[in-house]
Design a protein around this nucleic acid. Structure first.
Lengths: 324, 324
DNA sequence: GTGAAAGCGCTAACAC
DNA sequence: GTGTTAGCGCTTTCAC
């Protein structure tokens, strides 16, 4: 593996010259540049990123932390982040915290070890104290980590109202809401709040049932769906995440409950999951790609010392489907 | 940010001692170790990974290259790889090639720049010549890259036969197969071969239609599904990837074609997509988690100089569902 | 057992 | 404009 010194020797110039020619497009005379390029080609020289990193004290890498990537919401998100970061010149280090003991600690430490220039934190965290003293660039994705950590998320108040309006057009009387864990306060949790306000103003009964913390699998929602139909025989509307509502649809069909005649369903997230089944779900869609783009741009700004706002909020949209 | 030199000073020992104490569990006297630990705590010292990387000439990072992660198959795969790599002490650099001009080049170069210790290549490649001269550790996931590059994949011959048997139990006469692009030869493509052999031996007519190269979205399969029903009015069985077959199911239901009475469907891959809809699809499931685990173990072996076999093949299973 | 010093490969400030 | 050289922070060999 050729090093810069070899190139310098081959080109008959000094190491410094080679470095400058390689990193600064308008350094040196054409003749010198030519010689250096030739030597690079001949020796098939490729600079060592490790050495550059140490020298420049940066890695051009951003850590993306999510609970899991085997979930349509996070899959879309990670795809969007990777793409945006790539075009900004950054690499993506993927970290999934679910299934791993205490992985959050480890990933935060990776940040401190300067393995990454910054991180985008999309995983739930029970212990937000971890983030208090952090000096490194960090952005929270739909999470409250610390008052001084910038956050990007959907306007869930609007989301909640969109969902409410969808149900209100169909004269529902008893709506069950499936929420994530109540243990941790997230922006996403707030759509229930906005939703409830509207529903109660219209005299509609609502109940909330919760999934366990950090549950992003497909089994628990199915169990919960069964429980909902067992416990609330008069339910005529359900609001919850894509996965939860898909589970309800599945169970409802199995039980012979007609959708949307007897039961209205609105999915919150609006990932591809709601669009590629037999029935397209009515859904409030989070602008995942745009959120990803903003998060990527912002983390890069912060890395470059250009911190501005502490919060970026993008509006969701309603996708009309066949279930409400 | 405290450095090793500061720790040494604080502890009243030399830099070398600190390094040794930190990296070798049984180096030094308890007293010395104690002093060093205390200094580390006091200064909140965290070693710089960049410096270690340069010094040790490795990054403990593996690049995972896939077309996209916003697709259930690759999402599960990436999740599995990240998890396995994590437990082997490696970090995961995510690279998605779809949507990016010529990203394969860039990622291969990242490998050469020693940004990653090795890569697991799961993306289609039209230009396999890129891989000919590569000296760095690399493993192909369900792809033929070069004769000397190890490969891990499902036993697609078995997969093809499993699918065939599923159809044969139901007396089909005309089966349409949806395949990926014919432009690039992949192990996965071979299940069609095995499938056809069995079907033809039983006198069943088969037709193959193809998706474009590198198509992993959800739109094209829908168009193709429409086309299949238009072109082959007597089709009574369809075999294809999860996404393709889901699309067919969707279109079939819309057209009033009864599944499974009039049309049998078998999905190849068996991701979660086939299990969480209203109808569970009958599917040939690739052992994604196991494949991921093997791929992770093997790339680490190769990084550590322990290359053994050139190919690892794991068997798929049939998941019986409601569509065949 | 411990400390000094020579790298690891590259960048950029600073002389010439 | 070009070359020399001192870092970047850590690891480890090699004397003591």
């Amino acid at each position: 593996m050729a090093k810069i010194r070899d190139v310098a020797q081959e080109a008959g110039v000094s190491v410094g010259t080679v470095s400058m020619v390689l990193n600064h497009p308008d350094y040196g005379s054409p003749a010198i540049r030519q010689k250096v390029q030739a030597a690079v080609e001949k020796l098939q020289y490729v600079p060592s990123e490790m050495a550059r990193n140490l020298s420049l004290k940066r890695t051009m890498t951003v850590g993306v932390i999510v609970p899991t990537v085997a979930h349509p919401f996070f899959a879309e998100l990670v795809e969007g982040l990777e793409e945006s970061l790539y075009h900004l010149g950054y690499k993506t280090m993927l970290c999934c915290t679910q299934q791993k003991e205490n992985a959050e600690h480890v990933f935060i430490e990776m940040l401190q070890r300067q393995n990454m220039d910054g991180i985008i934190m999309g995983a739930h965290s029970l212990d937000t104290s971890l983030y208090q003293g952090l000096k490194q660039p960090i952005i929270a994705f739909d999470r409250y980590l610390s008052p001084d950590i910038p956050i990007v998320h959907t306007d869930h108040m609007v989301g909640g109202r969109l969902a409410a309006e969808a149900f209100l057009q169909h004269d529902c009387h008893h709506i069950v809401e499936i929420s994530g864990s109540q243990m941790v306060k997230t922006p996403a949790g707030e759509y229930h709040q906005a939703f409830n306000e509207v529903m109660h103003a219209h005299g509609v009964q609502t109940d909330i049932v919760s999934l366990p913390w950090n549950s992003f699998g497909f089994e628990e929602p199915l169990l919960l769906a069964e429980k909902i139909f067992d416990d609330f025989s008069d339910v005529d509307g359900i609001l919850g995440s894509d996965v939860s509502v898909m589970a309800c649809l599945q169970v409802a069909v199995r039980r012979g409950i007609k959708v949307p005649e007897q039961l209205k369903l609105v999915a919150y997230d609006g990932t591809i999951l709601t669009q590629n089944g037999i029935r397209k779900l009515t859904a409030v869609r989070q602008p995942i790609d745009e959120l990803a783009k903003v998060a990527a741009q912002k983390i890069v700004s912060i890395i470059n010392g250009k911190q501005d706002d502490l919060s970026w909020v993008l509006p969701p949209t309603l996708i009309s489907g066949e279930t409400c």
